[in-house]
Design a protein around this nucleic acid. Structure first.
Lengths: 256, 256
DNA sequence: CGCCGGTTTGAGTCCATTCAAGAGGAGTGG
DNA sequence: CCACTCCTCTTGAATGGACTCAAACCGGCG
């Protein structure tokens, strides 16, 4: 008996978005691919590359970033095991951002033509991948709101909440305590802050008692208070059942 | 002879992303829909709604926004005529952000089930819509970088460049001069600034001579300098042919 | 005419940055 | 095993960009 294809790691993610039949699954497992291993700091794709592959991250952490004119870096997304990375490379001529290994990572790279062909033959798989993209866009909007309209303490708390939930969802820890392989400079580049200020803000959070930090691990002493400080509602991650809670003001019907 | 279906306004946008045959086009034109007109400030969807429609904006300007805990507003996107708005509503249970009319707008609302059915029957249409979503995500990443890592002057210049190119692309003006129906407070909420500071920054830009502003119109005296100040590369809008310019550092091949 | 939303301007404050220096830790090599 | 280096974290002091508060101005409109 052969060991299961590494592509099977793609199934849970896609099944989150659509129910796929045996033919759909078979088509996924038949995709051509190559496995890659990258050491920390190595680039999977660089902004401007004519990237030919879309990737599935099977282990480790990666991050997406953009460099602005004066050399500043903005991290635009964090990827954990199971995430589909660079689906946009299937369509867009050039990579719009860097993807870099944060820890040692393992990646399945799938040629863009294979992704496109799969999407054309298997509508439900296409739907699942599209859905995944829509969730990514949602996450981006959350980040924009976080960076643009919250102060440093709330921004940081919000990010730590997001990471907690995502790490917990892949079984790599719990929201009350998890390993975070990011430096304070990484956090700063996610949040539009400087590492110095992240350091001070982290200290301030620790002093209020909501979290304790040693080395690269985060211990959340008071989850509710952390979500409070960070103005965090995890619905956008789509990792928990719909709470049914209305987050807006009075709902208004769509009317002609 | 009947007047052309308002749905035909959807074709140019989708044809930008995929070449569709007659059957594809027919399926689009057969979509059920209703036409809506909204006055300025009216909401098309509110965050938290169970939205049942995806929309095509056929005239006017709209904007997407999120409200954070302390009442602050972050604008997460600006929509112009021809844009597909709220495609995510076809999949996601609840709207993740508000969509609000900036000017008087006309909208074609299509039931989510119809979008899903179309995507399932017509793979190339699905592909075009997916592609559109990927471009949206790219735009979001640009915004994150803009808000997180540029100073006020560059942020504002970048936004004015983006709007110039988009307005030009729909034939509603030229990048050297266009009508902008946004208040300074709107601009501020796009950029993570306050309206007071936008006012001062606008004045500073005017004083360097790159632009002149009267009332709601923007005149760009020196386009190149404005793109310079705003660190703007319009590739992400996908409105102009690929310049072939490498924006990253030395490209690096994907290798095992 | 008087209101109203938006713009403009000023003065003072504060959050976050910059610059700088030192401490802690992990890995490397002699 | 220790010296050395490189990163990261930590802290202090000074600076500055953007904010807050507030008032005045302006044009459009009922």
């Amino acid at each position: 008996m052969s060991r299961p294809s590494p592509l099977s790691a793609m199934l849970p993610r896609l099944l989150r978005w659509a129910s796929l039949d045996d033919e759909d699954r078979g088509a996924i497992l038949d995709l051509p691919y190559k496995e890659l291993r990258l050491a920390p700091t190595q680039y999977l794709v660089r902004e401007g590359d004519r990237a030919q592959y879309s990737c599935l991250l099977t282990s480790g952490f990666a991050l997406g970033s953009k460099i602005v004119g004066d050399g500043g870096r903005q991290i635009v997304g964090i990827h954990v095991a199971g995430d589909l990375v660079d689906l946009q490379n299937a369509f867009l001529d050039r990579a719009d951002h860097n993807v870099q290994a944060l820890t040692a990572i393992e990646v399945i790279a799938i040629p863009r033509e294979a992704i496109l062909a799969l999407a054309e033959r298997r509508p439900l798989v296409a739907r699942a991948m599209w859905h995944n993209t829509l969730v990514d866009a949602w996450i981006h909007r959350e980040w924009a709101a976080n960076i643009g309209r919250r102060d440093a303490k709330a921004r940081l708390a919000h990010l730590l909440c997001e990471l907690a939930v995502r790490v917990e969802a892949i079984g790599a820890g719990s929201r009350y305590g998890y390993e975070l392989p990011m430096t304070q400079e990484h956090l700063a580049d996610c949040l539009g802050l400087t590492s110095v200020h992240v350091n001070r803000t982290l200290k301030a959070l620790a002093q209020t008692g909501v979290l304790r930090r040693q080395a690269r691990s985060v211990r959340v002493a008071d989850w509710n208070q952390l979500t409070e400080i960070g103005d965090f509602n995890g619905a956008y991650l789509h990792l928990e059942p719909d709470s049914g809670i209305q987050v807006g003001l009075e709902p208004q019907r769509l009317s002609a």
